[in-house]
């Protein structure tokens, strides 16, 4: 009834692609989150006036298509003779892209902690670091984590664009198979199913946490 030329080694090829997607995502989200926390704290501490340049730069990363950013970064690294591999370029761009969104999430988390709570901490003799570490972090995490999960999934999905730089990730791997086997629908369905299986459970977890940790009820 149903015939396909897809072999086990082709599936292994797809799995390699999926591993590449996950690797790019893991590196970018880790680096992007660390940068995002740093920038977020800077934005809150410096106030809107002094952090305006940072805000502008991060806003650019959110207002220019990721594909264009990737092409630009790749062109830049070859102009500057940095000799980066496509993997490095992709991770750098995706990290900055993640950081741009993460900054807003972190800022939102920090500003959601009532000023009175923080003043109470300081008046108990806590230092700024102690206030940040023991008061702000736990409270801000509750607010930020659901959006951060959403961001991680977004970056995972957007990482499909690195195929433009020649990196063989999940979507590119399936495209190669489509070209060879001429069974676009079947292979793309497998590809979509893999993305879905990675994304859906985590998205559900995010939705659950959002409901569970919602500060108003």
């Amino acid at each position: 009834m149903f015939n396909t030329a897809l072999t086990w080694s082709d599936l292994a090829f797809l799995a390699q692609g999926a591993a590449m997607t996950l690797a790019v995502t893991a590196v970018s989200v880790t680096a992007g989150t660390l940068l995002g926390i740093l920038f977020g704290v800077i934005r809150v501490q410096a106030g809107p006036y002094w952090s305006a340049p940072l805000t502008f730069v991060l806003d650019v990363f959110r207002s220019v298509p990721l594909l264009i950013q990737l092409v630009l970064a790749n062109a830049f690294q070859s102009i500057a003779k940095l000799g980066w591999a496509p993997f490095t370029t992709s991770c750098v761009v995706l990290s900055l892209y993640t950081a741009a969104y993460c900054t807003e999430i972190v800022r939102g988390g920090i500003t959601s902690v009532p000023a009175t709570t923080r003043r109470a901490a300081r008046s108990l003799g806590m230092t700024w670091w102690q206030d940040m570490r023991y008061i702000v972090t736990p409270l801000a995490t509750r607010v930020s984590l659901p959006s951060w999960i959403g961001l991680t999934l977004g970056v995972m999905k957007d990482s499909a664009l690195v195929l433009w730089l020649g990196l063989i990730e999940l979507l590119r791997a399936s495209q190669i198979l489509v070209t060879r086997l001429q069974e676009p629908l079947f292979i793309l369905l497998i590809c979509g199913a893999v993305y879905f299986l990675i994304s859906f459970p985590i998205a559900r977890l995010g939705g659950y946490l959002e409901k569970r940790w919602s500060p108003n009820d």
């Binding site: 999905k157 499909a160 676009p184 629908l185 979509g192 994304s199 998205a203």
Partner: peptide
């Protein structure tokens, strides 16, 4: 809604461009 939100936009465009060719 779940497919649109849980797969890359690029995948959805590929699906429209290559996948529908099967039909």
């Amino acid at each position: 809604v779940e497919i649109a939100r849980n797969t890359p936009a690029l995948f959805q465009i590929y699906m429209a461009h290559f996948g529908l060719g099967n039909f």
